[in-house]
Each structure stands twice: as structure tokens, then as C-alpha cells.
């Protein structure tokens, strides 16, 4: 049993729990955990003002209660595990370097923003800028794994450099925009402007894509061996993994404005016919 933080009442004012990480609470008693500072609006308050704390001295943190407005859950954690029984607010898992974050509900904007390592699993959907770079930053996610069973919002994996993002639902506009490298897999329908400005990297739009930027060129239809390795990796995520990557894909190279070393792979059987296919 880990350390459980139960939010007594939902707070219309966001509560920021940056710094309340598994490794931080691992050596603290429940009373000491309750004294950790959290930000409530513009004021710093002890955590115990809002949360009931049970358990102690475990690098395993549970969040219970209506945590929709709790920001920064698991942000910056380097190890251990965080489990959120409900929804998580913005910035959950942002800047993580290791460990495991599981969110049973949905997650707000900036989930796993600038992730460095570790794994994040969201069983609901996520809002925008998942795994993205913060404004002004040069790199988004540079390692680790984000898997979302629901859908994702806009700017998924913006400026991503390394790692794997798997969205089992669809995604909004500008997924993988300005991507530097790494891999994004979207099983549902992908929004417009997918991969705009991408330099390298792979976006597998297994559910098809509404529209590609015109700076993508059709390369070929082929059967890439490396996707089998990703399929094996996905199959290890949970028992009876329901999703199957396409065996034969249509490859589009781009963004040609940035060298064309990136690729968007869509299933050949995809009903959606990308605008860029006219170029092939």
C-alpha cells in the first residue's frame, strides 16, 4: 500500500502539486507529507489543507477524489509510481524522467509535456499539447512512453525528439508538428496538418488522416519490418492488446520544407485519401 492523498472537496481554484513526487514522499511520515507546500491559486498552503494523507514511506502515490483541477500530478518525478483514481488536471507527468504514472480518468493539457523518461498511461482521453514542448522551448518529449486509450487534442507531440506516443483514439490538429524525431502512433482518425514542419520521425496514422500538408510526398506502399517491433512493444503494454498496426502502409515523406526525412504512414486500406497522395 502506498501513500494516498484524498482531495476532500473539488476546488474551483487550481491546486498545484508540483514537487509532490513519489521519491519526495518515500521518506516522509503522513504528517510530514501533509506539511509539503502546494500552490492554491496565488497562495502557498500545506498539502494537508486540501488532502487527507494516509500511509507513509512508500515511493507509491495515489490520488483520490475529484482531482480535475489538481495540476502537475507526478510532474518531474524520477522514479516510483503515481496512480490517479479519477481525472488529472494540466501538466500531469510533465518533465518526468522516470517512473510510472497511471491516470484512470482523463488528463488535461500538457500531459507529459517535455517528458524525458518513464511511462504514462491515461485510460481516458487527454487534452491538447500532450508530450509537447512548452512555448519557447526547442524540444518536446525526449524519451519515455505515453499511452492514451482515449483521444488526444491538438499539437500532440509538438517538437518531439525521441520516445513513443500511442493514442488509441483519434487526435486533433497539428499532431507531430515540428517533430524532430521519435514515433507517434494514432489508431483513430487524425486531425488536419499532421506532421506539419516535421524534420525526422515517424507518425503512424493507423486510422487514416483527413489531410496532410501539401509539403508531403507519396513515397511507396510497403511492408515495413520495423512496425512488427512496435507491434510487439504494444502487445506488451497490456494483456490482449486490441490494436493492430497495419502490415502494409502507404508512406508519405516530409515535411519537404525541412528535408523530407520524416514519414507519415497510413494504412493502404484507409478510406481517407490524403490530399498529398495527389503528388504521388
Amino acid at each position: 500500500m502506498g501513500v494516498t492523498l484524498t482531495l476532500r472537496a473539488p476546488s474551483p481554484i487550481p491546486i498545484e502539486v508540483f514537487g509532490v513526487t513519489p521519491e519526495r514522499v518515500a521518506n516522509l511520515s503522513a504528517a510530514e507529507v501533509a506539511k509539503l507546500p502546494v500552490q492554491h491559486g496565488n497562495r502557498s498552503e500545506p498539502l494537508g489543507e486540501f488532502f487527507d494523507v494516509t500511509g507513509s514511506r512508500f515511493a507509491d502515490l495515489h490520488f483520490a477524489g475529484d482531482t480535475r483541477t489538481v495540476k502537475g500530478i507526478g510532474a518531474g518525478m524520477a522514479g516510483g509510481s503515481v496512480y490517479v483514481q479519477g481525472d488529472a488536471g494540466m501538466h500531469a507527468g510533465a518533465g518526468m524522467t522516470g517512473g510510472t504514472l497511471v491516470i484512470v480518468g482523463r488528463a488535461g493539457d500538457w500531459l507529459g509535456a517535455e517528458l524525458r523518461g518513464g511511462t504514462i498511461e491515461v485510460r481516458g482521453s487527454v487534452d491538447g499539447r500532450c508530450g509537447a514542448a512548452y512555448r519557447g522551448s526547442r524540444r518536446g518529449m525526449t524519451g519515455g512512453l505515453i499511452q492514451v486509450r482515449g483521444s488526444a487534442g491538438d499539437e500532440l507531440g509538438l517538437l518531439m525528439r525521441r520516445g513513443l506516443i500511442v493514442i488509441e483514439g483519434g487526435c486533433g490538429a497539428f499532431a507531430g508538428a515540428s517533430m524532430i524525431a521519435g514515433t507517434i502512433v494514432v489508431f483513430g482518425p487524425a486531425g488536419p496538418r499532421l506532421g506539419a514542419g516535421m524534420k525526422r520521425g515517424t507518425i503512424v496514422a493507423a486510422g487514416g488522416v483527413a489531410e496532410l500538408p501539401p509539403s508531403f510526398a507519396h513515397a511507396c506502399d510497403y511492408n515495413p519490418t520495423f512496425l512488427e517491433l512496435y507491434q510487439a512493444e504494444l502487445a506488451g503494454l497490456r494483456a490482449e492488446y486490441p490494436w493492430r498496426l497495419p502490415a502494409v502502409v502507404r508512406s508519405y515523406r516530409g515535411d519537404l520544407l525541412y528535408g523530407g526525412r520524416g514519414e507519415v504512414l497510413v494504412p493502404v486500406t484507409s478510406a481517407a485519401r490524403p490530399a498529398a497522395s495527389l503528388r504521388g
Partner: peptide, 15 residues
């Protein structure tokens, strides 16, 4: 220059 690196499950692969 057209080779692509993929880092998966702690291993690097070259395409």
C-alpha cells in the same frame, strides 16, 4: 544520410 534510427524498448535499430 537517409538512414533512420528507432529507439525502442532500450534498443536502437537502424532502418
Amino acid at each position: 544520410g537517409w538512414q533512420i534510427s528507432k529507439f525502442l524498448g532500450g534498443k536502437r535499430y537502424w532502418r
